[in-house]
Computed example of a mutant assay.
Amino acid sequence: MKKLIAISSALALGLTVAACDGPKENAMEDAGEQNAEAVNEQAEAMEDAGTMTDEQADAVTDAAEDKADAMEEAGEAADNATGN
């Protein structure tokens, strides 16, 4: 439940900040978030099935979120390079 609240808060903050982002950053951020969400759902399903511990599921989700952040930063760098 705590993770759901944290994700919801992050998404709300992301929507607030999105208006200032360039098009490449927005696209990379969206793709990264979608991927992280899919990974999180898979990790939770594996945890529910007993094939993964809660700690492992959290680690996989954290890694996916880190990758999403890196994708967003790459998109921001691309926007800055093109002057957007």
Rank of each mutant, 00 (worst) to 15 (best):
N84R: 10
E25D: 03
E73K: 10
N40T: 15
D58A: 13
M46F: 15
V39L: 09
V17H: 03
K67W: 13
A78G: 01
D66A: 12
N84F: 08
A10S: 09
A31C: 04
G22E: 00
Q42N: 13
K2Q: 13
A18I: 07
L15A: 09
A27L: 00
E73V: 04
T82D: 08
P23C: 03
M28I: 04
D79S: 00
D79C: 01
M28C: 03
L11N: 07
E29N: 07
A18V: 05
A19H: 07
G14N: 02
Q34N: 10
L11Y: 13
L15M: 11
K24Q: 03
A43S: 07
A27D: 00
A31Q: 08
L11G: 04
E65P: 06
A38R: 11
A43P: 06
D54K: 14
M28N: 06
D48W: 07
L11I: 13
M71Q: 08
A63S: 05
I5G: 09
A63M: 07
A64I: 04
V39N: 07
G32P: 00
E55R: 02
Q56K: 04
A63E: 08
A59C: 02
K24E: 02
E47S: 12
A12Y: 08
A78W: 00
E55F: 06
M52P: 02
T82P: 01
E44K: 11
E73D: 08
N80R: 06
D66C: 03
E37H: 15
V60W: 06
V39E: 06
I7M: 12
A68L: 05
A49C: 09
V60Q: 07
E37V: 15
V17R: 05
G50L: 05
N84I: 02
D66G: 03
E25F: 02
L11P: 01
G83M: 01
G83F: 01
L4Q: 11
A63G: 02
A38F: 14
A12D: 07
L13G: 01
A78P: 01
D79P: 00
N35A: 12
A18S: 09
E44S: 12
E47K: 12
A70V: 05
S8M: 14
L13V: 14
E33F: 13
K67Q: 13
Q42T: 14
K24L: 02
G14T: 00
E44I: 11
A70K: 10
E37T: 15
P23H: 04
D54F: 15
S8W: 15
E41L: 15
G83W: 00
T61H: 08
S9W: 14
A57T: 03
A74G: 01
D30G: 05
A49S: 13
S8I: 14
L4F: 11
A18L: 08
A49I: 13
A78L: 03
A10C: 07
D48E: 13
A78N: 01
G50A: 03
M52V: 08
A78M: 03
D62T: 11
A6T: 09
A19W: 10
D79R: 00
A68M: 03
E65A: 12
T61N: 07
D21H: 09
